[in-house]
Amino acid sequence: MITNTFIDNAKVMSKGQVTIPKDIREVLGVSCGDRITFVVENGNVRLINSAVYAMQILQMQMKGEAEKANLTSDAAVMDMVKEIRTESVD
């Protein structure tokens, strides 16, 4: 069985700062200046790329909205796009 789980560690400095190890930064897809989100659940902390986390939250909030708008096929979506484009030209 292949797993993408690994363990790394870092030292907490006097101001509470921690350097995220390079291999962890690569997995998260973050670099200098990027933001990360800390999610605390049951005494455990997850680090998540903030952009990825924001997209996950948006996807959860939007779940089921296409069905409510009767956008259940590619054709329905294309019809809506055409309608919006026509409205914006007028």
Score class of each variant (00 low, 15 high):
residue 1 M to N: 08
residue 68 K to N: 03
residue 17 Q to H: 10
residue 58 L to N: 01
residue 25 R to G: 11
residue 26 E to N: 05
residue 84 I to C: 12
residue 69 A to H: 07
residue 54 A to M: 04
residue 14 S to Y: 07
residue 24 I to A: 11
residue 23 D to S: 12
residue 74 D to V: 14
residue 36 I to V: 15
residue 66 A to K: 04
residue 38 F to D: 08
residue 72 T to H: 00
residue 44 N to K: 14
residue 42 N to P: 05
residue 14 S to V: 11
residue 21 P to W: 02
residue 38 F to T: 10
residue 70 N to A: 08
residue 2 I to K: 09
residue 9 N to L: 05
residue 36 I to E: 08
residue 44 N to I: 03
residue 44 N to R: 14
residue 37 T to D: 12
residue 68 K to Y: 00
residue 63 K to F: 00
residue 7 I to G: 10
residue 29 G to V: 02
residue 11 K to A: 13
residue 2 I to W: 04
residue 29 G to Y: 04
residue 64 G to H: 00
residue 67 E to V: 02
residue 57 I to V: 15
residue 84 I to K: 04
residue 26 E to K: 06
residue 27 V to P: 03
residue 25 R to K: 14
residue 61 Q to D: 08
residue 50 S to F: 00
residue 57 I to A: 07
residue 9 N to I: 01
residue 63 K to T: 08
residue 47 L to R: 06
residue 1 M to S: 13
residue 81 V to A: 10
residue 10 A to L: 03
residue 37 T to A: 14
residue 86 T to N: 10
residue 29 G to E: 05
residue 71 L to R: 03
residue 70 N to S: 09
residue 45 V to T: 14
residue 45 V to D: 01
residue 22 K to Q: 09
residue 44 N to L: 06
residue 66 A to M: 13
residue 71 L to V: 02
residue 36 I to R: 01
residue 61 Q to K: 15
residue 12 V to A: 12
residue 67 E to T: 10
residue 14 S to H: 13
residue 14 S to E: 13
residue 59 Q to T: 13
